[in-house]
Simulated scan of single mutants.
Amino acid sequence: MITCVIDYTIDPAKIDAFEEFARRWIDLVNRHGGTHHGYYLPGEGASDKALALFSFPDLASYERYRMLFGQDPEFIAADAVRDDSSCVIRYERTFMRPLLPSDPQDSR
């Protein structure tokens, strides 16, 4: 499994637009072979940080999903929410592999 962690800097004044953007991507990831673990938004106080986590079974599955960017009308529309509202100031994507309690490699 490969997990994508996206660290967002957002415009706190545009949180509604960011939530709409996030809802669309949760649905798209889940419909195209991934498992979305959710977006984590500011919960208390002023903050411009948000996170998203989603997983794919392997890198090849993720790459098939990524091929839809700029091609699939729903992907384009989801990105348009972000672009038109400027709710995302910047983001950084990192790929990680989870170490889960039931992972057989825990016994190393």
Rank of each mutant, 00 (worst) to 15 (best):
G70Q: 12
P101Q: 11
V88M: 02
Y8R: 02
S86P: 06
E92I: 15
L28I: 07
A22C: 05
D48T: 12
A52W: 02
I15C: 02
A46S: 09
A80Q: 14
Y62K: 08
L99G: 12
R90H: 10
T35F: 15
I10C: 03
T9M: 03
F54N: 02
V81W: 04
E63Y: 10
S86T: 05
R108I: 12
V88H: 03
G33D: 07
T94W: 02
Q105P: 00
D16Q: 01
F75W: 06
T3R: 07
K49V: 14
D103E: 09
F21N: 02
I6M: 11
P104Q: 04
Q105Y: 06
F18D: 02
V5G: 14
P104G: 02
P104Y: 07
I76Q: 10
G38E: 08
T94H: 12
Y62Q: 01
L53W: 08
H32D: 15
Y91H: 15
E74W: 06
V5D: 06
M96P: 01
G43Y: 13
H36E: 09
D27M: 08
L51V: 09
Y40D: 12
A13C: 10
Y40K: 10
T3D: 11
N30F: 07
A78K: 01
L59G: 04
T35Y: 13
T94V: 07
R93D: 03
D27A: 13
E19P: 02
R66V: 07
E20T: 14
A13K: 06
C87L: 00
I2S: 00
T94C: 07
R82N: 07
S55I: 03
P101E: 15
V88D: 00
P12E: 04
H32W: 12
Y8T: 05
I6K: 08
K14C: 06
P98R: 15
L68F: 06
R93S: 04
Y91K: 11
P42C: 05
F69N: 06
W25S: 01
S47F: 09
L51N: 07
R108W: 12
R66G: 00
P42A: 05
E63I: 05
I26L: 10
I2A: 05
T9Y: 05
V5T: 14
G38R: 12
Q71A: 13
F21Q: 02
Q71T: 03
D58M: 02
F95I: 10
A13W: 00
A13S: 14
D106H: 12
T35G: 10
D84A: 12
C4N: 06
F56D: 01
P98G: 15
R24L: 04
E44Q: 12
C4Q: 08
C4A: 15
I15M: 09
D27I: 10
L99C: 12
R64M: 03
G33M: 08
